[in-house]
Structure formats: structure tokens, C-alpha cells
Write a protein that binds this DNA or RNA. Structure first.
Length: 275
DNA sequence: AAGCCCGCCAACCGCATTCGC
DNA sequence: GGCGAATGCGGTTGGCGGGCT
């Protein structure tokens, strides 16, 4: 498996690592600690470039590396994280102990992408809009607007104040949406019906407001939300420190969107839920 | 049995970012 | 601030191995 073992190019060894090379690298790192990979490569006499040495250590030799199949829980987390951050493999790997970005990337490209595509294919066979419409107290016509899907999470970065907040809306966003559409000023890209969101800090302009009425035309688009995260490493890192199991639990409780169409089912927030 | 195909995954590569001087 | 080296990251490559014909 993998590259062929031990051919040389420009005086540097390429391809698969031998057991002896692993042994040498392990011993060296044990003595001197990880890092300074160029020096490590030179002093071990491994005839590998620093990059190769670093990669071998991080992806294979480093203590705590978990080998073997990805569990269902891990897979679930990968899918959810990927929805949030996209191909940020190192970020995703950071939330899954013992797994490397390379492993997750490979797993995604070889297994999950295909799996999800098949799943989506199946789902598209069902007329979801019809199902959803049945749950609404008034007739709905599809207006082609972009809507959240069940697993989407609305993220907003806020200025000032640390910590995370999680909010949810208990307005009937569908009704709200229809009302605003009648007003004739909505846009195609506005997220019209967020039910649950997370943001950092409080009260900043670019937080998605938690009420349908306030969720106006300056609301963030989905892409804006992601861009905001990318632009705010601090917020993202704070977010990634959250207890995900609890977070998803809350998310699942309130997000009952179905894919496509105007599709919310009104949920009242529990009185004691304070986000 | 032999040849072919394809999925898996370790490793490579190029680019971006960070660090140290 | 500029520059080179080191490090980090994500896309891609390519060979092994198993399944299929």
C-alpha cells in the first residue's frame, strides 16, 4: 500500500518508511522532542526532507495516534464538522482525538463523500416539500429562496465579550418569511429562517438576531457566516472548544428544517432554556 | 490462473503562514 | 519592514491489495 519503498531522488529518500527509519525517528524525538524537523532529518541521517519527517511523526509515530476503523460517532462528528467548516481537515481532526487530518481527509474523500451523495440521491426521490407543507397551518408556495437544511447551523461572530452563546428563535419564521415576501423586499440569498445559532460575545451587529422580525434583510448569508468564522480565528477556536455533544443535542432539539422549501415546524422554547 | 479494475491510504507537492534574524 | 527557513495545510498522486471477470 502507498508509495513504493525506498527509492532515492536528489539524494533524498522517497516513498514508504521502513521499520528501521521509524525506529530511528522515534528514538530521536524521544531524546530531543518533536519540532525542528530539518535538523531532525539531518542529525538522524535518515536522508529524508524535514517535511517528510514531520509528516511521518504527526501521522503515524506520534503517541496517541488511533489506528483502525472510524467509529460511527467519529463519522457523525466528521460530517457535522464538515458542514460547519468545510475542508478544514486539521480543524476537524483537532476535535477527534487520535485521528489525523490526513486520515480524515482520506476517509472523507474515499468513503463519506460517496456515502453522502448516495444518501442525498435517495432523499431527492421523496417529495419533501409536500411532506412539509402538510405540517403548516397555511398554504405555502415555493418561492425559490435559499433555506436552511436540517443540519445547518447558523454561526455568527460577535464583537466584544468572550464565550459562546447559543440562541434559538421561537417565532413562526415561515409566517414571518411569507409576510416579508408579500412586502416584496426579500433577497434570494438571505437566510430566512434560522432557529438555532451560535455566536461569540453579544450584541454585535453581525450576530444573527434571534427573532424573526429582527431577522431582516441585513441578516447574514450562509456564506457570510462561514467567511466571518474564517476571518475570526479567535471566535472559531473558542467555538471549537465547546462541548459538541451538548451543542448538537441542543441543535437537534430545535432545528427541524427539512431540505428545501419553506419548511419549519414551530417549536416553542422551554421556559428555562436560556441559550 | 491471469488480467483488469478500483478503493484505500501513505506520502508527495505546492502554496500559505509563521517564525527568527 | 524584508528575507529566508521552518512549519502547517489541503489537494493530489500512485502503488498495494482485494474483488471481479
Amino acid at each position: 500500500m502507498g508509495r513504493n519503498s525506498g527509492f532515492e531522488k536528489d539524494g533524498l529518500k522517497k516513498g514508504m518508511w521502513s521499520a528501521r527509519e521509524d525506529h530511528v525517528l522515534k528514538n530521536y524525538v524521544k531524546k530531543h522532542g518533536p519540532g525542528n524537523w530539518g535538523k531532525t532529518a539531518r542529525e538522524t541521517g535518515l536522508k529524508r526532507c524535514g517535511k517528510s519527517v514531520r509528516l511521518r511523526w504527526l501521522n503515524y509515530l506520534r503517541p496517541g495516534i488511533k489506528k483502525g476503523n472510524i467509529t460511527e460517532d467519529e463519522e457523525d462528528l466528521i460530517i457535522r464538522m464538515h458542514k460547519l467548516v468545510g475542508n478544514r481537515w486539521s480543524l476537524i481532526a483537532g476535535r477527534i482525538p487520535g485521528r489525523t487530518d490526513n486520515e480524515i481527509k482520506n476517509y472523507w474523500n474515499s468513503t463519506l463523500r460517496k456515502k453522502l451523495a448516495e444518501q442525498k440521491e435517495k432523499e431527492s426521490e421523496v417529495s419533501r416539500n409536500e411532506m412539509v407543507k402538510e405540517n403548516l397551518p397555511f398554504p405555502v408556495e415555493d418561492d425559490g429562496h435559499q433555506h436552511l437544511t436540517k443540519c445547518d447551523v447558523v454561526l455568527g461572530g460577535g464583537g466584544g465579550g468572550g464565550g459562546l452563546m447559543c440562541f434559538a428563535s421561537n417565532v413562526n419564521v415561515e409566517e414571518d418569511h411569507q409576510r416579508r415576501c408579500l412586502g416584496g423586499t426579500s433577497t434570494d440569498t438571505t437566510i430566512l429562517s434560522p432557529r438555532v445559532g451560535v455566536g461569540t460575545g453579544g450584541g454585535a451587529n453581525n450576530n444573527i438576531e434571534p427573532t424573526g422580525d429582527d431577522l431582516n434583510y441585513n441578516a447574514m448569508t450562509w456564506n457570510d457566516s462561514i467567511m466571518d468564522l474564517n476571518g475570526g480565528q479567535l471566535y472559531m477556536s473558542e467555538f471549537l472548544q465547546t462541548e459538541f455533544s451538548k451543542f448538537w443535542e441542543e441543535t437537534d432539539r430545535f432545528m427541524n428544517f427539512e431540505v428545501g422549501g419553506c419548511s419549519t415546524i414551530n417549536h416553542e422554547l422551554p421556559n428555562n432554556w436560556d441559550g
